[in-house]
Structure formats: structure tokens, C-alpha cells
Amino acid sequence: MGAQDWSNTEDAALAAAIGDASQEALAEVYNRHSGAVHGLARRILRDETLAEEITQEVFLRLWNNPNKFDAQRGSLRSFLLAHTHGRSVDLIRSESARRTREDNDARLATGAGQNIEDEVWSTALADQVREALSALGEGERRAIELAYFGGHTYREVADLLGEPEGTVKSRIRSGMKRLRQSLTAAGVTQA
């Protein structure tokens, strides 16, 4: 239980230490990723209180079920953000939160738009990500924006855009694949 400096430890090793009940390891993971988790939850939910609830839940779940994270299946960051996204979307699809969100939507309508390219600056890789986004077709980009930030199902996206469901469904998939190709070519993700 001696003081260990975790700041140079890789995420996967931190996750393993959390499995051994190291609170310091959890604190380090929290230091690294709580801003991204909280920022994503707040972006989707447009509500600070709910975003804090989700942030709390995401890190408590990591503590209580550290084995759900499998380093073979991706990075800790994407694991935490995927959980954040899933739970945030669950919440906005629940009826009680929907009203608040619609109110907030109306309030924010004149503020920051849904433009995904404005949103992306979270990492030092922002330029490459922005470039990859610009390589997408407009339809692909809109569909991904509405699904990822809007928390809409692809059927709802199809409604919103007035396009066939099948088209939207395949655009989301092809868009994500194309993004990955661009990012891999730029050396951001691995092939």
C-alpha cells in the first residue's frame, strides 16, 4: 500500500490494478478520463446534474466490475466512453428526461450547433480527425452526428432527414468505416 506513482502507468495496467482494489489506480484513471466522460455525457444530455450522475456511475462500475474491461477488445478510454454514451442515450430515451432535454434543446438552439467538426478538438489528434470527417459524404456525416451526439436511433435519424431507414443504417456503417480508414492512413488508429 506504499505510495506508488501511477502517472506513467499505462491504462491497461491501471485497469488491472483496479481489479486488485487499488484506489490510487482508480484515481489516476479518473484524472485521465473523467473530463472526457463528463464532457460526452453533458454534450448528449445537455444537463449538468445528469452528466455528473453518469460520470459517477461509469467510474463506480469500473470499480465494481473491472473484469468487464478487456484490454484485448480496445482501449480503456473507448470502453469508458462507450459506456458513457450507452447510459446517456438510455437516459434521454427515458420519458422523464426527454422533456428536460427538449426544453434545453430549445434554449440551446441559438447556441452551439450540432456540427460535428466544431465539436471535435478533444485530443492532440484533432486536426487529423477533422480532416477525416471532411472526407465523409454529407449524408454520412449528418447521420453519424445525429446518432452519436443527438442520441437518436437510426430510424429516428431517417425520420429527421426524410431518408429511407436502410440508407441511413448503411451510411452510419460506411461512414464509420471510412473515418477509420482515413485515421489509419494518418497514423491515428492502427490497421
Partner: peptide, 8 residues
């Protein structure tokens, strides 16, 4: 992994 890069 790609979605995580889009995070705000």
C-alpha cells in the same frame, strides 16, 4: 475506437 475520437 473511432467514436471515442469524436468525443467532444
Amino acid at each position: 475506437e473511432v467514436a471515442a475520437l469524436l468525443a467532444p
